[in-house]
Design a protein around this nucleic acid. Structure first.
Lengths: 138, 138
DNA sequence: TCTTAAAAGAGAATAAATCTTATTTAGGGT
DNA sequence: ACCCTAAATAAGATTTATTCTCTTTTAAGA
């Protein structure tokens, strides 16, 4: 929790109970939750947090690079508190999304694109979207 | 245009002026348009097409694998009529999205994952989301 | 402790997408 | 070519996620 406070302070953000609750919710949840799911989770301890506040706080976090949006095909946004470079595994039968970290792969891709490049495009970041099926239930 | 008709027939879909217009719009537009943009485009020749029809037709096309949704961070859906395996280049400063085809890369990835695999996950499809900047204006 | 800019609350407003119901139409069968 | 019917479209109300506006509250530096 102190670690969460430090994160906000580093970015020059005021420490509020709402921000702490939302960031804590995000960091304890690896399932890339929606704003809805975050609200549900924090309403246990913060019954009167406003919907708009949650969206606003999430936007603030994104702006300050504390969290990221996850790109999906659905019209509900999902959020990710893990900022280290990683890829995503998407379940083709459910809404499940998991992180996939693979430094060896990153090096392979980096080497490939340094050698080959993409015409008229300056690469900043490469993310894999791996679609498939999870063989074990979460 | 006959080619578009054939596409619908192959999937057992009725050929309607609305479907032809929407698919034609999608195939002539490489910018991964939104439903809104498609409507604007086809309203020139089809002034009284209903919004709901456009969404319905797009869903039907997705269901029959004639088009695909593009995963973005925004809450407007974008559509792609190119079904051959390809990746996407995302502009970090605008809404521009372009296709990126690279068979050599696909082979590299395939070889990598056949060798290495992902624990408890059966890969069906791998897409790269390459973020960066376009060095030439469209 | 005081001050004030920043943040949160409440709920109205917006925008994309979906749903409902009535009407129309494509295309197979006669 | 003409029916017939299931499928498709039109129109517009509705839903859902998200954003906006305005007022009140609060964090944290002076």
């Amino acid at each position: 929790m102190d670690n969460i406070k430090k994160k906000l302070q580093e970015k020059g953000l005021k420490i509020t109970p709402q921000r702490l609750a939302i960031l804590q919710a995000l960091m304890s949840n690896k399932s890339h939750p929606t704003a809805e799911m975050i609200m549900e989770y924090i309403r246990v301890n913060h019954p009167n947090i406003a919907t708009g506040t949650v969206y606003k706080v999430l936007d603030t976090f994104i702006e300050h690079q504390i969290i990221k949006k996850v790109q999906t095909e659905k019209d509900v946004m999902r959020y990710d508190a893990i900022m280290d470079h990683h890829h995503h595994l998407f379940c083709s039968e459910s809404e499940r999304i998991e992180d996939y970290v693979d430094i060896e792969l990153d090096e392979l891709l980096q080497a490939y694109f340094i050698k080959k490049g993409i015409p008229d495009f300056k690469i900043e970041d490469i993310r894999l979207h791996v679609n498939g099926k999870f063989l074990r239930i979460e």
